[in-house]
Every structure is written in structure tokens, then in C-alpha cells.
Design a protein around this nucleic acid. Structure first.
Length: 552
RNA sequence: UGGGGUAUAGCCAAGUUGGUAAGGCAGCGGGUUUUGAUCCCGCGAUUCGUUGGUUCGAGUCCAGCUACCCCAGCCA
């Protein structure tokens, strides 16, 4: 698709342009630093597009760095899934993949530097005591009794920590900053904690792991990151980021800038909540088409280009936001409208019999794959005496606004003939089982010769050639715009977020491959699901067509 | 008077030496159309959270007020 040509300006670009202009940097380096404790979602896509987009626009570099300082929550499967998703989105990181764990040895040395400068100490107060001494938002904290331990003792204790001489929770390394700071994160933050945990990169080499605030800024400096972009909740942490860089012999001075994270209506974008949806089986997995994950969106039928376009359209600011789903949907519709071949599928079939069509006759019609793009070619469409139409497209009686098939009235079968409904057959319950029609044989590819106007057009599938298919009709996962603000977000799950119907699709669709997208004319955009087999086709509805018809 | 942030149309968002409110999504009219789709044309802020002030002139500068978000993990 044609992505927005000129990227909209934003405050980060302005900072970069100023830095480049003033010679603060000759070139920029950014990074995308996910923790491998879950799958990437549309909110990460915003960050990915920002970081990789900036690097590309200013001829800089963008690293992929796994922020893997908490082995208990992370694993290699997430690492691989994340790499896969970044590439699927269309981005390639500079050089090799980086890991914060690559720097564990250096990080340890920098921590030791702080110890030797008297700026860090090993605290043996229990976790509860540490919390007690931290104070509150309005009251200053109090100094730990271990705050004035000698440098020599601290060095020995820190070495012993690394050697596994202490139990988990027995002690931690803390920075000596200011227990009365208005920034809670500056009240002697923990730098290292003890975890006898297996790490997916460093195995059992370490039993002490550095905290995010100590690790991130140093990793940025080691990779020569010029602009370290993160979300708003880290604004306070910037003080600690700068403190660490200033107090160690850092090889560079990276700067952190914060932007607002994405919030999308009718879904949740917090990793904790997404993990819960998966673990408690509210969805089929990380790639469930209702999930806002990259994998879920992909399976739903969203294209990389549509997601990139979305990220361009929402912009980058510091404002809290809740973006309408319609914004995302508009992006995929724009892409698919231009690029998805058309096909016909009937989701809720009712049979019509064309009584004046020769018994035993069938013919092969030709239909364009795209109404406005000749280059997409044509396909063959078998047509016969009996065809399926959408139950919705027929009414025994209706007003003039109903532009479909009505008893005694005419309608055009798309890409085929004009038919007229003559009578209906019903079962004992009064349900319509068959609609008997007649057709005008002289209306193939042209209007009726006597000049009568037929305004309605409906889609159809030939009964003897149509293929049965399972069609997953997806809707929003939650029934409220902001499930995250609900008491318990799982209580707001939309019970009808997935309805599977058995429909009939035109035979050309048997050639589709997994992931292929189509517009089922008049109903929406669909793609062939990963679980589809030649014996049983499965389609996922990506999004409905825009529908401005009011009186339904 | 803890601190850090943000306030421009239903949603997202431009606006940067103060000069008289971009654009996108949604919506509403109209035209084209063998998809109630697409496409095309037209329509929305006397007003920028609010109250004052400075100024010939303020969304942009100053002061006060209000609302909302974030911070008290040995999570990130």
C-alpha cells in the first residue's frame, strides 16, 4: 500500500533534528528493547515503527536488544517470537541481536565502581524493612543501617553476593543517593538482587541480576545509543538513568526521551493482562485472531504495511490517548481494498432455483478479480440452475430502501444475470427453504434491453460447485471501550467475539494459500487461516466492509 | 504546596522568533458505480481545560485555578 509519504513531525524528530544540526551527534542510534516475557503487541509496533523508522529516516542505526535481566519471567521462545515479529513487520536491526545479559560482566564492574566510590552498599535489611524505610509519597524515607558500611566491607559483600554466599532476599546492592528525594526511584534504589535462576542466555553463570534502571542506561551507553526512547511511566526513572551515567565511567552519554504508550479501544495492551488471557484460556493463544498481538493481528489478516501505516497515523506525543478501533480498521481496509482480490462467499446460505434456466445446464462465467484494477485479471465462475444467496438478501416484502431481492422484484446476481423472485417454499416452522426465481437470459454483462432499472446487486455461489468452508467471524474481544479501567477486565470480555459459521465459497478459493487475503464482496475482508486444509477451508474475517447503510 | 507529566473538534494530531486554528479517522450531504464497498466533490473549532494579565495582536508569553495520567517491586 502507499504509506503516508511524509512522516508527520513529532517532538522526537524535532529533538533529533536539533541534535544533528547542532553537531551534538553526527548520526543517530536508537534501539528497540523488549523484555522477552511475552509476545509483541500493537503497542510495541508503535515503538518499533518509531525507533526503526527514525533510524531509517536519518540514516542511523537501530538495535534490537532483549532487556533480559529477570530470568524468572523470560524464555527463549519469547525471544524467537519477538525476532520473528519485528522482521515480519518489515524491519531489520543493525548487526547482531543484543542482550542486556551480554553486558553482565561489564555491569558488574560498573557496580563495583560505584561500591568503590562509596556510592553503593550491600543492604542486609529484609525486603519489608527496605519498603518501610523508603517512606511514602509525602514523607521522606530513612537511611538504612547498612548505608554507612565501609567501602572495603561492601566490596567483600558484593563479591560474596556474586559467589552465591547469600540466600535470595538476604541482601541487595543499593545505590547511595538520597532517601529524602521527591523521586521515589532515587531513594537508594536496588541495583542488584540475588536470584538462583537459570537464564536463557547465561545459563547458571550468575546468581545476581542487575535491575532495569541500572542496566538500561549502561546498555544504551555501551551500544552508543544516542536517543533512548521509552514510554511515559519512565519519566521519573530518567533521574536515575542520568545519575548512573554520571557516576560511572560511562563510555557515552545517551539521553532518554519519553512518549505516551498506545491505548486502543475495546482491547487491552498490558503484558500482564495479555498473559492472563492466554494462560486462563480466554483466547486460543498468543496468535488468536482477537488478540492485539502482532501474531494475532497477522493471523487476523492484518498486513505489515497496514500496521506501519497505523503507527504513522496515530503519531507520537506525550498525551494520554485511547485510539478508536476504527483507526486501525481504516488502515487495513485501505490496504486490502487496493490489494485483495475479490471473491464471493455466502455466509448464511439459502437456495434459489432459477426455474427457467435449462435443467442440467451449467456455464462458466468470467469475473474480474478487482473492479478497479484490470491488471489483477479474471477468474472463472461456474453458474447453474441452483445457487446460494445470503438469507439476509431476500425479503418477501420490503420498502424501496431495501436494494436486494424481494418477492416479485428483480435483482442482479453479481457478475451474472438479473433474476426475479417468483415464490418461496417454507418448512413447517415457516422458515424459507427455497426461493424460486426466473432469470433474464439477456442480462449477462449488460443491462436489460427494455431499459428497466435493476438497482440491487447481490452475491451468490453456485450450488453444485460451491465449497463448504468454516468462516470465523471475529468481533472486538471486549464489550467496553476501555476494559483496562474496569474493576476486573475479564468480566468485560465480549461473549460473541467469535462466531463460526459454515458458509459456501466459490470454487476458485480452493487455490488459496494460508494468509491469502480476499474481499468477499459485500461482506468484508477475509484471509485463509493457518488451520485451513484442502478438505476443510477455514477463513478468518479480518474486518467488515465499511457500511453506511442506515435503515437496516 | 510530595514529585514527575499532559490539556487544540467524537478519536488521533499539526501548530517552535506571538500575526489571526494543517491533516487523518469517524460523521453528515451530493455524484459515479453490476460490491449499500471503492472513488470523487462539499460540510465541522469565532476557538485552543479554565480565570486573569502582558500586547496593536496569544493556542503560542506570564500568573492563578481545574481535570486527568505516572511514581512508595529485590518487575520492566
Amino acid at each position: 500500500m502507499a504509506e503516508t509519504e511524509h512522516r508527520p513531525t513529532n517532538f522526537v524528530r524535532q529533538i533529533i533534528e536539533k541534535d544533528l544540526q547542532n553537531g551534538v551527534h553526527q548520526t543517530i542510534t536508537t534501539r528497540f528493547p523488549p523484555e522477552p516475557n511475552g509476545y509483541l503487541h500493537i503497542g510495541h509496533a508503535k515503538s518499533i515503527c518509531l525507533n526503526f523508522g527514525l533510524a531509517s529516516d536519518y540514516q542511523g542505526q537501530c538495535n534490537l536488544r532483549f532487556d533480559d535481566t529477570n530470568p524468572e519471567k523470560e524464555n527463549i521462545d519469547f525471544v524467537n517470537a519477538i525476532k520473528n515479529d519485528v522482521q515480519w513487520l518489515g524491519f531489520q536491526w543493525s548487526g547482531d541481536v543484543h542482550y542486556s545479559s551480554d553486558y553482565f560482566e561489564k555491569l558488574y564492574d560498573y557496580a563495583m565502581e560505584l561500591v568503590e566510590k562509596g556510592l553503593a552498599y550491600v543492604d542486609f535489611s529484609g525486603q519489608d524493612a527496605v519498603r518501610e524505610m523508603r517512606g511514602t509519597l509525602t514523607q521522606p524515607g530513612t537511611n538504612s543501617p547498612y548505608r554507612d558500611t565501609s567501602v572495603e566491607e561492601n566490596r567483600e559483600h558484593f563479591i560474596a553476593m556474586r559467589e552465591g554466599k547469600y540466600q535470595e532476599g538476604e541482601c541487595s546492592l543499593r545505590a547511595k543517593i538520597d532517601m529524602a528525594s521527591p523521586f521515589m526511584c532515587m531513594r537508594d534504589p536496588v541495583l542488584y538482587r540475588i536470584k538462583f535462576a537459570h537464564h536463557h542466555q547465561t545459563a547458571d553463570k550468575w546468581c545476581i541480576y542487575p535491575m532495569y534502571d541500572f542496566t538500561h542506561c549502561i546498555s544504551d551507553a555501551l551500544e552508543n545509543i544516542t536517543h533512548s526512547l521509552c514510554t511515559l511511566e519512565f519519566q521519573d526513572n530518567r533521574r536515575l538513568y542520568d545519575w548512573v551515567i554520571e557516576n560511572i565511567s560511562a563510555p557515552a552519554t545517551p539521553r532518554q526521551y519519553e512518549f505516551s504508550r498506545l491505548n486502543l479501544e475495546y482491547t487491552v495492551l498490558s503484558k500482564r493482562k495479555l498473559i492472563q488471557l492466554v494462560d486462563e484460556n480466554f483466547v486460543s493463544g498468543w496468535d488468536d485472531p482477537r488478540m492485539p498481538t502482532i501474531a494475532g493481528l497477522k493471523r487476523r489478516g492484518y498486513t505489515p504495511a497496514s500496521i506501519r501505516e497505523f503507527c504513522l497515523r496515530i503519531g507520537v506525543t506525550k498525551m494520554d490517548n485511547l485510539v478508536e478501533m476504527g483507526m486501525l480498521e481504516a488502515c487495513i481496509r485501505d490496504d486490502l481494498n487496493a490489494n485483495a482480490p475479490r471473491a464471493m462467499a455466502v455466509l448464511d446460505p439459502v437456495k434459489i432455483v432459477i426455474e427457467n434456466y435449462p435443467q442440467e445446464q451449467t456455464e462458466t462465467l468470467k469475473a474480474p478479480n478487482h473492479p478497479n484494477d484490470e491488471s489483477m485479471g479474471y477468474r472463472e465462475l461456474p453458474f447453474g440452475r441452483e445457487v446460494w444467496i445470503e438469507a439476509d438478501d431476500f425479503r418477501e416484502e420490503a420498502n424501496k430502501k431495501f436494494k436486494r431481492l424481494v418477492l416479485g422484484k428483480e435483482v442482479r446476481l453479481r457478475n451474472a444475470y438479473v433474476i426475479k423472485a417468483e415464490r418461496v417454499e417454507k418448512d413447517d416452522a415457516g422458515n424459507i427453504t427455497c426461493i424460486f426465481c426466473t432469470y433474464d437470459a439477456n442480462t449477462l454483462g449488460k443491462d436489460p434491453e427494455d431499459g428497466r432499472k435493476v438497482k440491487g446487486v447481490i452475491h451468490w455461489v453456485d450450488c453444485s460447485h460451491g465449497i463448504k468452508a468454516d468462516i470465523n467471524l471475529y468481533d472486538r474481544l471486549f464489550s467496553v471501550p476501555n476494559p483496562a479501567s474496569a474493576e476486573n477486565f475479564v468480566d468485560t470480555i465480549n461473549p460473541d467475539s467469535l462466531i463460526t459459521v459454515t458458509g459456501v465459497v466459490e470454487p476458485s478459493l480452493t487455490n488459496a494459500s494460508v494468509g491469502d487475503a480476499f474481499q468477499f464482496e459485500r461482506t468484508g475482508y477475509f484471509c485463509l487461516d493457518a488451520n485451513s486444509t484442502p478438505e476443510r477451508l477455514v477463513f478468518n474475517r479480518t474486518v467488515e466492509l465499511r457500511d453506511t447503510w442506515k435503515d437496516r
